[in-house]
Each structure stands twice: as structure tokens, then as C-alpha cells.
Write a protein that binds this DNA or RNA. Structure first.
Lengths: 239, 239
DNA sequence: TGAACTTACTGAACGCCGTGTAGTAACTGT
DNA sequence: ACAGTTACTACACGGCGTTCAGTAAGTTCA
């Protein structure tokens, strides 16, 4: 969308970008310290020695800021799980899936407010934009899974039925899948989402404190579930 | 805990109980209409022709009211899924599990605010009490699952490993399991939680709008996942 | 019946919140 | 030096949960 040849940023622009960053940084810090409820324009401004109104010069509305935060946090999550996945050899599909899953849980427990921000309704009255941050998040999450699913597909016999059509999935997801893995049928998209959902379930319950009162070792539960899943994909769990 | 022989309620007590119920009813209605954010003491009071302060005569604090709501809503959910499960013949374990799962999703989509209330952080700043409503919910959910898991256990060979101990689970869960199904090993408790988590994942993603942008038929995805799960439990999916 | 007590509720206040808007002071380019 | 832009403040509005003094009923007992 940028038509101009990107002139070097003026002093004004630099200061502006810096303040924008600072607002988000402070917001994330407040959130990490006091939970997502601690994100209030007034608290952020207070922390920065400003007035709440000043923030409106940088973000149209509180929800715009929250959306930006979601994108930042989501980027962090995606980077983390993909880095973990890529620490396994490209051929070790079982290991890569397990690494991905383990990293997902680890990140979520390390950043529960982030998890709530992305996957819950952490912020009072926040309405995601049309299409929205949640949509972005989902698209990216699914795209990230695609590689894993593609690698597992040949052995994932169990999932080759299901009678799915490309029309069952969003245009964007279809495009990404076609581009990166043209050999995959629509059922592979379904598999990706199911894998995602399966991991999400136990993590969400744990982050929201629903498994805590029931078991003293939710980690083992999760790892076993992960192992089961890998096995059901026709792969042999490593270690 | 009631020591007195429960004298018939006085007029005062009846009115009081009625008002308490009305507060909760109005709160649930507001929530159904305007999402969980619509639950505010002021809005409830307004709706009832009262002042916000008056509600403090019935609930110590807003969170106390929310906790009561969670318990009510959770009771409704549990009743619904158990009723669906019991509409299948006691011998039809596969059918009962599928009915349970299908009813879970149906209820969640019909009452998204309720789902958020129980499993998310629907209400701004709500802090569950120690032990808490979430704990209650989890205990009851798991107890409800126990029957299904018990029925599936003989065929669920895949899950008979895992090396769990009773010490891995909460005392209360162990008691319930021992009482109702003394033949089950600790690994069965783990299986119950895993089944729960697996269903929760896709439903949570859907309720929070993460699957919507990706697929046009999340229901099929869910039903397939349910069927897979039943199969992996060593059962034959019905229909 | 009438006094003493208890309950249910109001109304105003406190400090929090997001959001607008008018005004000011500082930077920026000519 | 001057005009224009930008960054910000100050204040106001209505919302929120919560507290508290006060009032008007309902209830109990002499």
C-alpha cells in the first residue's frame, strides 16, 4: 500500500513510533503484572506521565490498541512454537508435532494473560474488528499447522475420509494450502483444525484453572494426549 | 449443616428468596441479551426498579453474585448433556459418548455467554473464590464423564498405560471414582480429563470465533473429531 | 394498641473507567 | 519570523462497583 519510496523517517516520525511502541510495551507490562484488566488507557497514561486522552493520538480507540496488542502477542506465540518446531529435524515429523504442542502449552502457561487476550475475552467490552484479530490469529495458527499436517498426511490414513470440499473452508485458508501444499486434499485442512483444537482444549482448561483442581500433573496429561495424537497420525512418538 | 428442624419460611423469608431469584434471573437475561458485560449491579437494579446498593443486601459483592450465576448456568449445562447422554440406551456406550459430546457443543453454541461465563473470563475483574466455582465446575464435569469413561474403559486399550497414580489426582475426584467405579485404575481418570479436553478445544475455539473464519462447517469437524475419539476408545461409532 | 427492633431500600458520595472536545504549548518547514 | 501541524492537557459526561448514613416500612412483644 506504500506508494512513496519510503523517505527516511523524520524526527517527528521517530518520536511518534517510539511513543507508539512505549504505549504497547507499558500495556503489555501492566497486563503481565495485573492481568488483562490492568490494561486501561488511564493506567497506561499514568505510567507514562501522560493523560488518557493523549493515547487517542496514537490509537483511535481502546479496542484498536487491544487489537494491536493481540497481534503483537500472537506474533510472539507463533514465533515461539514455530521456533520450537524447527529445532527438530525436518524429517522428524513426530518430533516436530510434539515440539510444537509442548511449546504451545509452555508459552501459554508462561503468558496466561497473553493466552486469555488471544483466545478469551480478556478485555472488558472488547469487540474484535470485522474479520478481526481473532480471524488473523486463526489464519496464522492454521497456516503454521499446515506444514505439520502436510508432513503427517501420508501416514494419517484414519483421516483421509470425511468427505470435505474446499468450499467448506475459508478462501484464504484454501489459498495458503494450495500454494504451500498443492498435493493436499480438503480433508487435510480439517485435520489441521482438529489437531489445533485438540491441543487447545487441555491448554485452555489449564490456563483458566479448570484442570488444576483435578490433577496435580496436567503436564503429563497433555504430553500423553500429544503422544496419542502423534500415534493416531500414524507416526511413532520419539522418546 | 442445618441444625434447626427447618421451620416453615416466614413471609419475610419468602420475599427474600424471591428477590434473590429475581436478581439472578434478571442477570441471566441481561447476559443473554447483551453478553456477559451486561451484568452490572446497576443494570440489574435498574431493571428491577431498585438501586444498585440494594443488591448488597442479597449478595456480599458482585463476585458472589457471579459465582452464584456460574453455579446455576453450570448446573444447566450438566443437566443438559447428561439428559442427552441418558437418552441413549445404557449399553450403547459409543452412542452415549457421542450424544454427550454433541449436546456439549449444542448447548455451548446456544448459550455462548454461559460458556464464556463458566470457561472464560466473561466478567470484568471477576476473581473466583478459593477452590472456587471453576473447581466445582471441573469436579462435576469430570464426575459426569466418569460414567462414560468407565463404560468405555474395557475397550480403551490404548489408554491403559500412562503410569498414573491416584496421587496424581485431587482427593475429591479419587473419592468419586472409587465410590462409583472401584474397578477403574488412575489412568481412567486421566482418560476422562483428556476426553473432556478434547471436546472442549473445538467448542471453545468455535464459541470464541476462532474457527468461524476458517471453516464454514465447524459442526462436521466436531462430529468427525467425536467419531474419531469414539473409535480410538475401541468402540464402533453408531450411524 | 403502641413502643422497640429489624429489615429493605434510597441517595449521595468516592474513585475507577472510556471517550469526546476545546484549548495550549511546542515543534517544523518556509 | 510566521503559519501550520502536532502532542498534549484539562475538563466534562455517563458508566461502573462499593460504602454509608438515613428512612420507611414490616415485625415482635408488652
Amino acid at each position: 500500500m506504500e506508494t512513496a519510496p519510503a523517505a527516511p523517517p523524520t524526527r517527528r516520525e521517530r518520536l511518534r513510533a517510539e511513543t507508539t511502541r512505549e504505549i504497547k510495551t507499558v500495556a503489555l507490562r501492566l497486563m503481565a503484572e495485573g492481568g488483562p484488566d490492568a490494561i486501561s488507557l488511564r493506567a497506561i497514561a499514568r505510567e507514562m506521565g501522560m493523560t488518557a486522552g493523549a493515547i487517542y493520538g496514537y490509537f483511535d480507540t481502546r479496542d484498536t490498541l487491544v487489537t494491536a496488542l493481540i497481534q503483537d502477542v500472537y506474533g510472539d506465540l507463533v514465533d515461539t512454537v514455530e521456533a520450537a518446531r524447527d529445532r527438530c529435524a525436518p524429517g522428524d515429523t513426530a518430533g516436530r508435532i510434539a515440539a510444537w504442542g509442548t511449546a504451545l502449552r509452555a508459552w501459554s502457561l508462561a503468558h496466561p494473560e497473553g493466552f486469555r487476550l488471544i483466545y478469551g475475552d480478556a478485555v472488558h467490552g472488547y469487540q474484535p474488528p470485522e474479520g478481526g484479530a481473532a480471524a488473523d490469529a486463526a489464519e496464522r495458527a492454521c497456516a503454521g499447522l499446515t506444514g505439520l499436517v502436510a508432513a503427517a498426511w501420508p501416514t494419517a490414513k484414519e483421516f483421509h475420509d470425511g468427505d470435505y470440499t474446499w468450499a467448506d473452508f475459508s478462501d484464504h485458508l484454501c489459498e495458503v494450502l494450495h500454494r504451500d501444499h498443492p498435493e493436499l486434499p480438503p480433508a487435510a485442512a480439517a485435520l489441521g483444525m482438529r489437531v489445533w483444537g485438540r491441543m487447545h482444549g487441555l491448554v485452555a482448561l489449564e490456563v483458566y484453572g479448570h484442570t488444576g483442581p483435578l490433577t496435580r500433573d496436567p503436564g503429563r496429561l497433555y504430553e500423553d494426549e500429544l503422544k496419542s495424537m502423534v500415534r493416531e497420525l500414524g507416526l511413532t512418538p520419539t522418546a
